[in-house]
């Protein structure tokens, strides 16, 4: 009896040491990412098993919505599309003018990269983990570090790619950093997630920087990971404590991190030069 118990204790001791070693390597390095991917491949069916019935029910709900509401929705969507198209015409003119001016200045012209719509899988993670799972993976050429957007703003970047799914780190995670720029004053900063408040914090902004509440921050394109010009969020509070070296600025993410269903995976332009030619008008 004593022998068996002490054996279990010894086993626990070794397993605990292995766990701690694994946790430290996982936190500090990328060495165990490969291992993580290998383990998650056989687990992917579980995620589909949970996600597909829920998506099926959602689809069923759509099917059963009455003719009347569909007509109404269709009408609204058409009106919205018309509005967006009208705005788009203006943007197209502005974009071509902008490219022309940039060509005159001999700088690189902005072209749109390839875009793919992915759906967020209906699976939960631990509530304190700021990650989501997408239903597109290696088969669709998703790559680690790829920027992910939704209709209203930047959501995050891909951190792990499986054959048919991928994992996205949201911008509200403390490990996520996004280079941003103020639209009003042009002040640049790095936006780092703050998981405790569910918002984003601007790191190391001097007290004298011109940032006010309600300012909009766009991605600046520095760092070459996120494309330039997508909204990250709106400033909700600026606290300038004279006792501290930097001001503390909280930004509310523009993307609907907990509500969107469809997201956009972006291939930055330089990676798909050949495809861009056919797309540019």
């Amino acid at each position: 009896m004593f022998n068996k118990e002490s054996q279990i204790g010894l086993r626990l001791f070794f397993l605990a040491i292995i766990s701690i070693a694994l946790m430290v390597t996982d936190h500090r390095t990328k060495m165990v990412n490969q291992l993580r991917t290998v383990i998650s491949i056989p687990l992917t069916p579980l995620q589909y098993l949970v996600s597909s019935p829920i998506q099926f029910i959602d689809n069923l709900k759509n099917l059963m919505s009455t003719h009347d509401t569909l007509v109404k929705e269709n009408f609204n969507l058409k009106a919205e599309q018309l509005l967006l198209k009208a705005q788009m015409q203006r943007y197209l003119a502005i974009e071509s003018e902008n490219n022309q001016l940039k060509a005159l200045l001999k700088s690189a012209s902005e072209v749109q990269g390839k875009v793919l719509v992915a759906e967020i899988m209906a699976v939960d993670t631990e509530p304190f983990v700021n990650q989501i799972v997408l239903d597109k993976g290696e088969n669709e050429n998703v790559f680690v570090g790829q920027p992910v957007l939704d209709a209203t703003g930047v959501m995050g970047q891909v951190i792990q790619v499986m054959p048919s799914t991928s994992r996205v780190l949201l911008v509200t995670d403390p490990h996520s950093g996004v280079p941003v720029q103020n639209t009003r004053s042009g002040v640049r900063a790095i936006a780092i997630g703050d998981s405790f408040s569910g918002k984003i914090r601007l790191a190391n902004v001097p007290q004298t920087a011109d940032i006010r509440a309600d300012d909009i921050f766009l991605t600046s394109g520095l760092g070459q990971r996120y494309p330039a010009g997508y909204p990250l969020g709106r400033v909700v509070s600026v606290v300038k404590d004279p006792g501290l070296q930097f001001s503390s600025i909280l930004v509310e993410p523009a993307a609907q991190l907990d509500r969107s269903r469809e997201v956009l995976l972006i291939w930055p332009a330089q990676k798909v030069e050949a495809k861009v030619d056919t797309k540019v008008k």
Partner: peptide, 9 residues
């Protein structure tokens, strides 16, 4: 691996 926490947690 399923919940995306640190490996070993």
């Amino acid at each position: 691996v399923l919940t995306g926490t640190l490996l070993g947690e």
